[in-house]
């Protein structure tokens, strides 16, 4: 187990360095640096260069850059909120994004799991075929198309929920009601993926020999399914859990924009469109960081759940 954890941690650290290096490279190759302005007086230019360590060799610059990133010191925003430290902007936008993502995850998992189990237990029946159709549909139709459709029909035509996210700070009923559509738009595709995956896994487990043995030792079909099949088919679910976190996170970028959610997603779109590079880079770094932490959590809990990893056995 220790070996497994340290392996994961090392891989993650390298990934983090890779990301930072990539960002560093990007910053340095980005056109339109302030110091390239020919109108700038030499002494001011030198002062700026000194401030940003631009007069030092590249390696030293890299070390500074690394230090800055690891201490969350990303500099100031240029255009979106000029002169405001990037970190403060992100800190401001982060909670709603995390709220949205976690709610979407909480909505996705149980429904996906229930649908998957139902499809597997009722294999080749009308229920199964219906769920299969839903799966193909929701996997195929992009989340932003679903979002537009929901917004136009549910919010605009039927007026059931607000069109845009409520501006209230606290999580009130009004606020929650306005979050329903973004959550739905984020969840549908993921629900379909969980359903499809769990169905396949469960069908295989249900046909396994240990299910037969469980039944021959006197467990009813129901008991055997609950105690052996479903439990076991949950473990490989971790395989799709990490891509799912990625996908909800990135889906949120567009969905936030559509529903005017003042989160990290809208921020990154603003930053990209305004060519506010320090902000964009910091936002991307944050996305990577959230993703890395989620991976670590999933990987470690996976290690705890699956005895074959916990005990260091072969998979």
């Amino acid at each position: 187990m220790l070996r497994y954890i340290s392996q994961r941690l090392i891989a993650m650290a390298i990934t983090l360095f890779l990301i930072i290096s990539l960002l560093f490279f990007l910053v340095h190759s980005m056109p339109g640096s302030i110091v390239n302005d020919p109108m700038l007086p030499i002494d001011i230019k030198e002062r700026i260069e000194a401030k940003y360590h631009l007069d030092k060799p590249l390696v030293v610059q890299y070390v500074y850059f690394l230090g800055d990133f690891l201490t969350f010191n990303f500099g100031d925003s240029i255009k979106v909120q000029p002169k405001v430290p990037v970190f403060d902007i992100i800190k401001d936008k982060l909670p709603i994004t995390i709220q949205l993502n976690i709610l979407a995850l909480l909505f996705t998992l149980p429904i996906g799991v229930i649908c998957g189990i139902m499809a597997a237990l009722k294999k080749n029946t009308a229920t199964d075929h219906g769920l299969n159709m839903m799966v193909v549909l929701f996997i195929s139709v992009p989340s932003f198309v679903i979002a537009a459709l929901l917004q136009y029909i549910v919010a605009f035509k039927w007026e059931l929920v607000p069109i845009l996210l409520s501006a209230e700070q606290a999580l009130t009923w009004t606020k929650f009601k306005s979050m329903i559509l973004p959550i739905l738009a984020l969840s549908f595709g993921e629900i379909a993926i969980v359903t499809r995956y769990l169905r396949a896994e469960l069908c295989e487990t249900l046909n396994s020999d240990y299910m037969l043995l469980a039944r021959t030792k006197g467990l009813s079909q129901m008991q055997a399914t609950l105690r052996h099949a479903i439990r076991n088919s949950f473990i490989p679910l971790a395989n799709i859990f990490i891509p799912m976190i990625f996908s909800i996170l990135s889906g949120a970028i567009v969905i936030e924009n559509i529903f005017s959610v003042p989160g990290l997603g809208s921020l990154s779109i603003n930053a990209i469109n305004a060519l506010d590079h320090p902000l964009t880079i910091a936002v991307m770094f944050f996305y990577s960081l959230i993703a890395l932490i989620s991976i670590l959590v999933v990987d470690l809990s996976y290690g705890i759940i699956d005895p074959r990893i916990r005990m260091g056995g072969k998979k």
């Binding site: 396994s208 020999d209 240990y210 037969l212 043995l213 469980a214 021959t216 030792k217 052996h228 439990r231 076991n232 473990i235 699956d306 005895p307 074959r308």
Partner: peptide, 14 residues
Amino acid sequence: SMIFQDPMSSLNPI
């Protein structure tokens, strides 16, 4: 009661 062919797969691995 019944015993199956493959002991590798007839026990629940986890």
